[in-house]
Design a protein around this nucleic acid. Sequence first.
DNA 1: AGCTGTGAAACAATTCACAGCA
DNA 2: TGCTGTGAATTGTTTCACAGCT
Lengths: 207, 207
Amino acid sequence: MVKDSSVPEVVILRLPLYIRALTQMSEEGQAVVSSKSLGDRLQITPAQIRKDLSYFGRFGKQGRGYKIASLIEELTNILGLNRQWNSCIVGVGRLGKAIINYPGFVPEGFKIVSAFDNDESKIGQTVNEIQILPMNKIRSIVKENDIKIAILAVPATIAQSVISDLVDTNVKAILNYAPIAPKVPKTLILRNIDPVLSLQSMTYYLD
Amino acid sequence: MVKDSSVPEVVILRLPLYIRALTQMSEEGQAVVSSKSLGDRLQITPAQIRKDLSYFGRFGKQGRGYKIASLIEELTNILGLNRQWNSCIVGVGRLGKAIINYPGFVPEGFKIVSAFDNDESKIGQTVNEIQILPMNKIRSIVKENDIKIAILAVPATIAQSVISDLVDTNVKAILNYAPIAPKVPKTLILRNIDPVLSLQSMTYYLD
DNA sequence: AGCTGTGAAACAATTCACAGCA
DNA sequence: TGCTGTGAATTGTTTCACAGCT
């Protein structure tokens, strides 16, 4: 299936959700699924699932549904999850360390191959077998190791300036944990992880 | 300002962003701001900012803009951020501990007053002055301490079952860090923090 | 002149509803 | 009969454009 920039981003954001649910179902021994039962599990309408999938191909069979194993494979290919993505972490404070030690990333194919920090006292230390390097090494290391994704875990105060540095490297995507709305060129992919915003919007609906 | 359920949720999600940018501008010594300059900082169109604010009132002055201090106050009131919200953390593994120690929550008015875990060996321990209690205490503690928000940091495998327990307490909102799409009654507010989904959708746009 | 607040227009996403295949 | 795939209808969101206040 061709990568088509006309696919709405909301659709792309749902695909990983589909893969996750399908994988579960597969582990539970199911071989086939309908858009209705997948939708039940994810609280998404069947029509939406069918329309989302239809952007990429015709993976189902009328009257039967989708073969789970092959749908997982299709979606995995579409998202480019059939290979390993090298990433680096920038900022190795408490948050950065927690991310490095979080076991959820590695099995998903996002290997953290390198870590950077500007704190003299941290440089040379090792966290989970990853050596902490100074920021001025980042350009060369990113290039040498084909690192496409940077995970940003520095304090908010310096986040924008670090992002500007990152833009000058070969990094193509940033997963940003700093509580700011960073300015990046729109060729760079950005996702923000910002629990404080989530909390602050929840309270509107309380009481 | 009246809490009107006809305000689109996307609008509510942007309000904390506005507060954050306005607070920064205020700290930088600015007293007044136009929708244009606020929009520049957040990469949001001025029209959208004006329309968002218009759901709640007329806070600006034509020809002049918005008084930053009073707009912050209005938005803070609208979101209910002018008071402290008690929360508890459920699951005190590596992730849960990292959250408890994350300094970003407390100043924002989300006090973690209590922590729960079912691991015998953890019960009674203290993390950042918070005592770890067994799960069977959660109903009473939530009630006694007027806890409205639960922060869920348990493994994916047990997350849905823990959520079912939470639904039986007085908790009104869940900030979920487990990588699942939980089923909750729609009266309960839910926000998911799911970095793996973010990573998996970014790769679509890489190479 | 400069900027807000807001209907109306444009655009985007979701859901409907049904033809058609297994 | 049971389900997909998909145009058409609906619903939701963003942007335009301008009257009107300061």
